[in-house]
Amino acid sequence: MKSYGWKRLLGLVPLFLGITILSFAVIHLAPGGPSDAKAAFNPKMTAQARDRLREIYGLDRPLLVQYADWVRRLARLDFGRSFVDGRDVREKIAEAIPVTLLINALSLGLIFLVGIPLGVAGAVHEGRPLDRVITAGTLAAFSMPAFWLALLLISVFGVHLRALPVSGVHSLAYEEMTWAEKWVDVARHLLLPVLVSSLTGLAGISRFARGSMLDALRQNYIRTARAKGIPERRVLYRHALGNALLPIITLMGLSVPGLLGGSVIFETIFSIPGMGRLFFNSVFTRDYPVIMGVLVLGAFLTLLGNLLADLGTAAADPRTKTGLLS
């Protein structure tokens, strides 16, 4: 078990290098540079001023040198400074990441908490009306364009009923609130974003759980258990479910990048200052250090998620000793 963990970790090194190369390439092969975006069509920005910017950012050096320099600093966990406002990229990411992680963790939790029971219920009632309703419902939630759904929810709960805040993470008076009030305030603000981001993810997990549960139910040991006269409840929830849940752990790790990517959209609609917004803004201002920082960090988080999921599965299932899980 321990050696398996080490092997996995070692395998991550070339993967991580690949990630840095790709992150670097995507952005540096593109036309348009940060100095152009910064000039933002200001009639007073002279050509010399723009050249000056290029020099300051070190963009006049060969690509390979820039890459080597960047990776060297990355190894020391130094992401560089933003081209736009000169702040440390770590600082910018550190500001943006908590709220995105919180929302993603909450929605991931919600997705699994709701999705697995739905999928299991569907499997147990395979082909019956309940199964159909669940399938149709989760699929419908998946098929809605997220921003459409979000706007509808905002106009109903925020504008017409005035029951929930329209956007943002905190009320204006947040800083003056007591500890408990702060909790309630953040919860009220995050309700709709978490709902929207988890609704769209529900279909995947519940379908997966359903399939996995169905597979488990077809296994011989279930037939044996049933034949032995063990109560159906016990068969379903002890024997079958335990085995069905195992592959779902892996799925958890794999859903990280999807959720992270989707965050751009709902962070825009709900005015949430998270990673998605940070990335979007930096793409449009060609803020290379931030773009690369976010990409690398996002990939790193996914790697971490996968690793944890793998180790979790390995720990839970002695059969997995080697090999890739997919």
């Binding site: 993967l15 990630i19 593109a30 348009g32 990048p257 999807g258 793409v283 990409l295 990939a299 996968n306």
Partner: peptide, 22 residues
């Protein structure tokens, strides 16, 4: 390995970056 690497990226971020600049 390449597949694993691509799977690590938030796909939508990559699409956004490429579409925005190209």
């Amino acid at each position: 390995g390449f597949v694993d690497m691509m799977l690590c990226f938030p796909t939508f971020f990559l699409i956004l970056a490429v579409v925005a600049v190209v």
